[in-house]
Design a protein around this nucleic acid. Structure first.
Lengths: 208, 208
DNA sequence: GCATAATCAGAAACACGTTCCAGTTTTGTT
DNA sequence: AACAAAACTGGAACGTGTTTCTGATTATGC
């Protein structure tokens, strides 16, 4: 199992998306848009496959052709959200004196973004947690984005150095804590403030 | 049917259900036993409410009277498993020279136990991750067990000292990592060996 | 011992994820 | 242009979690 060069500049669309005709790309976009809208409005339960299909103006069978399950659909939506967020967060140097400060800055900004749309976050997080092995590709992609984000924040700017094992380990641990905290928040077991405090503690612990 | 101490030997009912007649306690026990058996055999999907009811020899409506949802049912089962495991793991001094060694010992032993019954673990973990706010009580109990387990391992034996904030923070971070690793393993996204390696890295990172 | 309330069994019904199918439209090839 | 293959539509249908209903059974207070 490896962990490759994460801060890939490659924007490549991998198999599950890039190909296809313009009509197909458009359908896919409409489906993901409908998913966003429904999730943002009513959370996981409101993302009903019939409703998504109707809103995206495709038949139910077509929806299932593009996304073989509700989980795939939501995890793909989460993936797209990350794809959009990561460049926004990494394009300019990240403020902060120490790696801990910078990582916290990034994590908090991301948390704030998600907390601004709680229902959407609930839907996506839940899907992520419920996914089984058949979604490992999509999930791996999200994990990579997360790792890349954190390692990028640990250094202030994008020098060319190879990313070390240590950095990856730190990033993965922080990613795990972040996910758990997110789940706790999403399920109403902790407040946003508690989540933030917990993340801060974890970062200071791990980044000596 | 397999294996371990899960198939209740203890007949005692604990706090969250202690009340009620003997017949009610017996029904509850039968229901949880059926849940164990089905989960151990076929995992989350195999725990079907009709099947649980039939196996426990109660009507479907009765099952729902005792546990308002499948998630509640499974999370309760997980809670009982923890209740049984924690004393077994904390009753004697934990081997290991350093806190890191001892924590690893405990976590690995627990992981081994769960990996010995993968389907059961899958079912319980999924339920845990999918739970919403209405099961926060049960989930909080599990979280406390986990924290207590780790803090106990960090010290070798049970001296009377107050547990520090720092220790709790470390325990919570490790609990988060453990949970994420467990989810990754359960959903087939990582192997047992990878999970163990990841846990080891995290422990060494957090416990200097 | 009996009246009353609580609980239970059994079964039907509903909701939503998922699958399947017959017919139609779009796309690609020759 | 004609044909074949692939994709799409509309809708029915199935499985499983959940709810609801009715009549039996059991527990509880007098």
């Amino acid at each position: 199992m490896t962990t490759n060069s994460l801060t890939s500049t490659t924007d490549r669309d991998n198999g599950d998306n890039g190909g296809g005709s313009a009509a197909q790309r458009d359908r896919r976009r409409r489906i993901l848009d409908a998913t966003y809208a429904l999730a943002s409005d009513g959370g996981f339960d409101a993302v009903q496959m019939r409703a998504v299909a109707e809103r995206a103006d495709v038949a139910l069978g077509t929806l299932y052709r593009y996304f073989p399950s509700k989980i795939h659909l939501l995890v793909s939506a989460l993936g797209r959200q990350f794809e959009e967020a990561v460049p926004r967060l990494t394009e300019r140097p990240i403020p902060g004196e120490t790696p801990a400060d910078r990582v916290l800055y990034v994590l908090k900004r991301m948390a704030r973004g998600m907390q601004g749309d709680p229902k959407l976050t609930e839907a996506l997080t839940r899907a992520f947690m419920f996914a089984d092995g058949t979604v490992s590709a999509e999930i791996h992609a999200v994990g990579m984005s997360m790792t890349s984000l954190v390692t990028h924040a640990m250094r202030g700017s994008d020098d060319g150095r190879e990313i070390t094992e240590e950095e990856i380990a730190v990033a993965r641990v922080l990613g795990d804590v972040w996910l758990s905290a997110l789940v706790a928040w999403v399920t109403g077991r902790s407040t946003a403030a508690e989540t933030a405090a917990h993340m801060e503690t974890a970062v200071r612990l791990v980044l000596h």
